[in-house]
Amino acid sequence: MILEMLQDPLVRVAFAVLLPIIAIFLGLFYKGLDRKLSARLTSRIGPPIRQPFRDVRKLFLKENIVPENSIPWMFNAMPLVAMATSLTLLLYIPFGPFPAPLEGRGDLIVLLYLLAMQPLAMALGGFASGSPYASVGAQREMVLMMSYEVPLATIIVGFAYLYASVPAAASAVWAPFSLGMIAQTPVWAVVSGPVGIIGLLILLGVLLVVTPAELVKIPFDIAEAETEIAEGLLAEYSGRNLAMFYLSDAVRSFAMCAIVVVLFFPHTLSSLVPLTAYPWNTEPVLFTLETLWFLLKVFIVYFFAVTLVRTSFARIKVDQAAKFFWLHMTLAALFGLLLIYLDVGGWF
């Protein structure tokens, strides 16, 4: 019933408008959880979970300073671009049981570009700041982006290859790059043998390593290194512009973890637990449960890929990060891809 309602274009537009607002709320909420858990990991009490909301409110109240030797239009535009791309990103991700609002109008490739867009906006904003710290940060961000995009693209190619091998009849729409389809048929069911499973596990590992780099979190927060270049890219940002970057970071963190969930753990609650056996099996209840299940999965990924990683490692240097991604991660991703190729080809 709800799915049918969503077919209605009007409802769909309303959903697409509502989702960014929910996403901002969830992004900040997850950030609060992240900060609280990170504090508990380090034996501190930590800020209240609503602290990120207060931070944003305060930043919006603060004066927006544009440095004298910056390029003002670019300096002011980039936070908006970053914010917009982060929110658009979310419109392509199936939100638990709900299909993505822009379902069918874009796929994994668009996602890849949108993921690259926000760091690019930040780097441009950094270059436009006219501060040596910000330009060093922007240079680092570009180098880092070039490094992690290759393994990320390899993962996406692997997925497309895997889903392209599914006979057209098995799914309604034959679209190997579609996230909707990936969400409906868990990837673990698509591979045929243990080799493919190993390949997928490798890809999952690579994606989990790419996640903190994608989100500019320790150990890959090289572009914002506080003790080296004084927050780098964000050195000159303040007030509303900084709040925009803050929000876009929060939303993106949520979106990135949601992508990991959709790609690798799209299993619904009903596929694991026979929910239909219970008497309260009405559609709204099911949808609520499924949404909560989805949020829980995102939270687990968030904890392991972001919170735990960012608390237990030191920031590495940009050349080390570049080497790490180009050599180790790219090779690992290609090896995973090879295993999937072997699996799909039926060699094993």
């Binding site: 990170s38 990991l41 380090t42 034996s43 501190r44 320790i218 150990p219 927060d221 290194a225 506080e226 003790t227 608390t311 237990s312 490692f313 030191a314 920031r315």
Partner: peptide, 16 residues
């Protein structure tokens, strides 16, 4: 020195 390399949890732990 842990803080200088962005390793704040190590700073908290050693100082604890």
């Amino acid at each position: 020195i842990a803080h200088e390399m962005g390793f704040d949890p190590l700073l908290y732990w050693t100082w604890k």
